[in-house]
Every structure is written in C-alpha cells, then in structure tokens.
Design a protein around this nucleic acid. Structure first.
Length: 582
RNA sequence: CGGGAUGUAGCGCAGUCCGGUAGCGCACUUGUCUGGGGGGCAAGUGGCCGUGGGUUCAAAUCCCGCCAUCCCGACCA
C-alpha cells in the first residue's frame, strides 16, 4: 500500500480517555475509532490485524477438523426460552422486537442456535463427532465496557461447538482444542498461561482459560511455583495448613470489645492473630431456580479473618442468580445483631450457615457475640456452632499453599482472558431436547464442548505484551504491515526510484509492505511508522549516494545494507521472521 | 445500579468562581523557506459552548431538569 492513498488517521496527542497502552495506540495510531460506548469502527489498519488473527485461527481450526459455519447475530427468543437462558441471562442480553412485536436477541453466544442447527441435521451416532465453528460478531451489553477493543460491547469472537456420543469422545476433542489453542496463541507470538477456570454463565463442568500475561490484565491468576497447578482466582483453592487450629478447647466466654468492629481492630484489642478470628458476612441472594422472582433469601457465611470472601465462589455454592451483601438494616431485622459484632453462634433456626473450610475446625477462636460491643473467645467449630455445611468461598492469594503438591507456593499474576474451552456435557442438549440415536437405537442427549476465542482481545493483547512509548511492536504474524519503506526526502528522484523499485518487487511476492510516499518531514514519517509497528523499516536517505540504505528493526536494532542487495536481504529477513514462531 | 468527575472546533484544553464581541495548541487549506524524530514564517477554514427550560437589558458563565461521556466497585471472549 501507498501511505498517501491509504487511511491511517494518526494523532499527535493520545486521546485522554484511553487508559491502557493497547487502547492508546489503537486510537492514536488510527487502528480503531470509537463510535459509542463499547462500539468501534475498525479502520483499515485495525482490520488488517484482526484479519491476521482470524486467518491463524481458521487455519488451525480447519487443521483440527472443525468446520466453519456462520450463524445469524439476531436470534429468535424462542430458542433462548427453550434453554431457559432468556430468563436467566439478565440485562447483558440485548433484546429487540421486530415490527411484528416478536422478541429477538442479538447473540452474545450461540449455544442455542448451534444446538438447533445440529438437532435438525444429526440423527445418528454415526454422524458424530462434529465440531462446528464461526468467526462472528457478538453483542453483550456489558455493565462497564472499557479498554477499547479489550472489553467492547460488540466484539468479534471465534466460537466452536462440538457434539459427541460419548464423554470419551468429548475428552479427545477437548484435548485436541487445547492443543489447537496452544498452537494459535503461539503463532500469534503471544506469551500465555492456561488456567483452570470457573465456567460462569455458560455452565458445564470442566473449563480452562488461555490467559495472555500482562500487567493490565483484568483477571488475577494463581499458579504453583513447583508443580503444574494454575487457576483463575475465581476458582483457585489452597491446602490449609492444619497446625493453626490446635490446642485444648477452652470454655466459650463473652468479652467486652467496645467499638471494635473490624478484624484488624479486634485483633489488636484482644491481641489475637487474624487467623483465630472468625469473620461473619451476611448475603442476600436469589437462587437460579427462582427464574423471575424478586424475593431475596438470606445466607450467613463464616471465614477466617485473614481471608477475603470470593463472591463468585459463594454464588456457585448458593446457585444464586443475584447476590449482594445484605444491608445493615436487613441484618438487624433478621439476625437482631449489629454489623461488626456478628457471629455464627446461636443463629435463628431458619438461617442458613455456610462455613468456609478455613474455620470448620477452628479451636479457641474469636467471633462476634451478636450484640453490640461484645465478642466471644474460646470459640470452637462444631461445639459452639454447626459446621456441617463446609464450603470453599475464600479468595486465595499469593503465598498460599498449592492445593495439589506439597511444599508448593502460589504465585499471582495478571492475565487477559483470550480463550476459554469448556466441557459442557449435556446441559444444553437436555434443556433443548437435542438427541440422537445410539448404537442400541436409544435416544441420547448430545454431549457437548464449546471453545471460544476473543479475536479483538487477542490482537490488543499483543500490544499490551509488546510495545514501547512510541507504539506497538507487533509480532510479524499480526503486524498490519511486515515492512515499511520511508524515503528521507520524498522529492529526491534517486531515493524515490529506489523506493518504488523495492515497493513494487515486494508487493509482487506478497510481502505486506507499506510505502510512505507522502511529502512529509522524516520525523512525521518515523512517528507514524512507529505507530504502524512493522517489524522492519527501510529508510532510504542520504546514504543512498554512497550506495547504502538503512534497515531499522522495530525492536531497536539498526544496520546499513548495500542498496544492490537490499531486496534479497529484506526477503530473507521477512522469511526468517515469519518462520521463527511457526 | 451505587460513588466521584466532565461535557467549549476533528484531537488536547483555557474561559465558568466574579454574566458583557468564544479563545489557545495540534490537525486541516494556501503560499514560502526547510528537510534524519511530529520544523519555521505568513495568510486562512472550521463552534446551536451536550440539551431543554428559567433568571437577566445581556448567559459558555447563575438556577432547575434531562442526556451523554469518563473514572472507582459487582459481569465476561
């Protein structure tokens, strides 16, 4: 492409609302343009990057035997009503009416549609397994879109769905997808980590996330420093060190603790460690089984003073559709106790008490006495309060013991979730009565898997992981252009002729080359070139009179090359870069 | 949805407290001198000051409503 005929609207100043590097450079470099909250135009440069990611995904998915399809983005409500998600999905689902007042939604994901597609076409186990995918735009009316394409409302996603007669067969495809994803992100030149994950609103059993490691990542992940354990913070667990809760049980005793509400205050006041204090939280929730109701139930949760509660974990334990901390007033109404002095002892009989495993065996602990300015000491789980519903609802943190090996410690890192693979099982096939005939001629629900990749997010992650203060440093696989040619003096006929010659030749052998033929100062061209982020920049300048031109790599390295061999050099450099990762 | 802030030219902002001709930098247009990291000089183009109402002789500025955007918390590729 010739820069003068291309559209790359770069800005000298960074848009003020851009927060993270990928968003700043994508806007500043003319890759994307925001048109509404979480909704963007992809400009030519941005689209080139997206297409490259898509191409890699297509090649690898096809190689793994998946078949590409394209489902509609508008989905009739009946399908979502059939699976029940029409009622459960909440405001994130964009619902639309057509002229006939019929309900539709803009697809945020496509399990319902694919199940419908497959049930209409697959009747026998002989036609299985089947793995279908599409690369298509989704819309999720996110609570808080941010970070540009990283968390947009409309976004491009590759989603694949596999159908099986047996769980062994699902396992095999799941493994195959694991390898395919590994290969895809490797080819994109990205550093990533795979963690086991919470399966969220999609549901199902096992799932793993592919996380691009980056400081700006919105997810926290934990991994073991000595074994293979790695998990999203929403899922991560730890092995409790049992030695904490030892000693002979003392009698339960009330002590005055005027004004001591927080764990920290109580710890200081009574001189006991956080680990001996039982934290008591009260939550309101609406269970999933209650599809349309507005009636809240109450749950009391206890965990060890040094831990924070994980609302995601608690949501799962309660199978809650809606979950929120109860108000002080609610607590007073139901427990007759002030916040700050809550405890699990002598709760009203109708209140459900969940005990985190960190307090399930506590001996001689401290907890609120359910009245103002009083705590109990000598609290023993089981003896003083029931510990028959033991759960794991704590947020694990760096330094905690690995749950899978002895001696391992967990390390915490930030990550960007770019891929997620699930074993769905029969969740959707059962709710939607999607069945096939097995070898015995009996009807069985399909066993399903599902596999997603955020395309725009993957592209943006590459910037997060590799940039300097001037712009992206693209891996060649994703770079919008592989080579950019700049003349120092646009009107110099010799420089121009040299540039034209290289440009034409490189174009003819399908190297992605951008020729900056504008009559601009060289500083302007350099700055724009940095924003384009091509791995190799060819500068044809005053050294041409001595027969040489400059090769500048986006990573910083520079060298002079004889003009006579420049073309061959460029070709071999690009070839080498292309094959470095493949 | 809760808490905080902001809406003035394509972008970044000043002006608002204290009402009186709408400004600056960048970008854009023309000319010219330049020519190795966003250059200089000169001349230009471009604004229902978010929106609706109110106060006033007079509103970007004061008052009330609405809308939008951004940041911090609960969702997800």
């Amino acid at each position: 492409m010739r820069f003068s005929q291309y559209l790359i609207p770069t800005f000298r100043e960074t848009p003020s609302d851009a927060e993270i590097p990928s968003q700043q450079f994508a806007l500043k470099g003319g890759y994307i343009k925001k048109i509404a909250v979480g909704i963007y135009d992809l400009l030519p440069l941005g689209l080139r990057v997206i297409r490259k990611v898509e191409q890699i995904i297509r090649e690898e998915m096809n190689k793994a035997g998946a078949l590409e399809v394209m489902m509609p983005s508008m989905i009739p409500a009946e399908l979502w009503q059939k699976s029940g998600r029409w009622y459960r999905y909440g405001k994130e689902l964009l619902r639309i009416k057509d002229r006939g007042d019929r309900d539709y939604c803009y697809g945020p994901t496509h399990e319902e549609v694919i199940v419908d597609l497959v049930t209409n076409n697959i009747k026998s186990y002989k036609q299985l397994p089947l793995n279908l995918y599409q690369i298509q735009n989704k819309f999720r009316d996110e609570i808080r879109p941010r970070f540009g394409l990283m968390r947009a409302r409309e976004f491009t996603m590759k989603d694949a769905y596999s159908f099986h007669a047996t769980s062994e067969c699902l396992d095999a495809t799941y493994q195959r997808m694991f390898q395919t994803y590994t290969q895809i992100f490797k080819r994109c030149g990205l550093k990533f980590r795979v963690v086991s994950a919470d399966s969220g609103a999609i549901g199902g059993n096992a799932s793993q996330e592919f996380m691009i490691t980056a400081d700006s990542g919105e997810d926290a992940i934990l991994y073991c420093d000595s074994c293979h354990y790695a998990a999203n913070i929403e899922k991560a667990t730890t092995r409790l060190t049992s030695s904490i809760h030892t000693g002979d049980p003392l009698p339960l005793k009330e002590v005055p603790t005027p004004g001591q509400r927080t764990i920290e205050e109580v710890s200081t006041f009574l001189n006991v460690p956080f680990t001996q204090i039982i934290k008591t939280l009260v939550y309101n929730f609406i269970p999933n089984s209650d599809l349309e109701g507005e009636i809240f139930s109450l749950a009391v949760v206890c965990l060890r003073g040094d831990y924070e509660l994980s609302e995601v974990k608690l949501g799962h334990v309660l199978d809650a559709r809606v979950l929120a901390l109860a108000s002080d007033r609610d607590i007073m109404d139901h427990l007759n106790a002030p916040v700050g002095f809550l405890g699990p002892i002598d709760l009203p009989a109708d209140i459900k008490l969940l005990v985190d495993d960190s307090v399930a065996s506590i001996i001689n602990g401290v907890t609120g006495a359910s009245k103002a300015d009083v705590h109990y000491v000598g609290v023993c789980a089981g003896r003083d309060f029931p510990n028959d519903i033991v759960v794991d609802v704590k947020t694990v943190r760096a330094g905690d013991a690995c749950p899978e090996c002895s001696g391992g410690k967990l390390i915490q890192e930030r990550g960007i979730e770019v891929g997620h693979i699930f074993k769905l099982g029969t969740k959707y096939s059962e709710s939607m009565q999607a069945q096939f005939l097995d070898e015995q001629g009996k009807t069985q629900p399909f066993i399903m898997g599902c596999y997603g990749i955020g395309v725009g997010r993957t592209a943006m992650s590459a910037i997060e992981q590799s940039h300097d203060d001037r712009g992206p440093i693209w891996p060649i696989q994703l770079a919008p252009f592989e080579v950019i040619i700049i003349t120092a003096k646009a009107e110099d006929t010799e420089q121009k002729a040299m540039a034209e010659d290289l440009y034409t030749k490189l174009m003819s052998i399908k190297i992605d080359v951008l020729f900056d033929d504008r009559n601009e100062r060289i500083g302007v061209k350099f700055n724009d070139a940095d924003l384009v982020g091509a791995p190799l920049r060819i500068v044809i300048g005053n050294k041409l009179s001595e027969g040489s031109i400059e090769f500048n790599f986006r990573t910083g390295e520079k060298r002079d090359v004889k003009a006579s061999i420049a073309y061959d050099e460029i070709v071999s450099i690009i070839e080498a870069l292309r094959h470095q990762i493949d």
